[in-house]
Amino acid sequence: MITLQEYLSVGALLFTVGLLIVLFRQNAISILMGIELMLNAANINFVAFSNALGGLTGQVLAIFVVVAAAAEAAVAIAIIVLLYQNLGTVDVEKARNLNG
């Protein structure tokens, strides 16, 4: 039997890995991957709670997270492609046009 805490630790570690990618990488697509991992970490927690508490609300919430992630990825990729077409790079450090 795997306890709830073990699942939550996996979720926490996965969140950390995602955070590390977001903070460390400069390529916009890599950052998007990190964000997906963080969303997945949240989902693991939702589903683990749902399993531990015997209700399905956690799973339903996870479904909404997946839907939001899909929508976010589509918009993000479109923005990245536009960014590349306008600036010729997808390095987030170089996209400083909107800085004050």
Binding site: N27, I29, E36, A69, A73, V81, Y84, G88, V90
Partner: peptide, 21 residues
């Protein structure tokens, strides 16, 4: 969603943002 949708979207994104990326 993730494997059939999002990763493929990312591959397309990679291909559309040029070889330097």
């Amino acid at each position: 969603i993730y494997i059939g949708g999002i990763t493929i979207l990312m591959v397309f994104g990679l291909m559309l943002t040029g070889p330097g990326q």
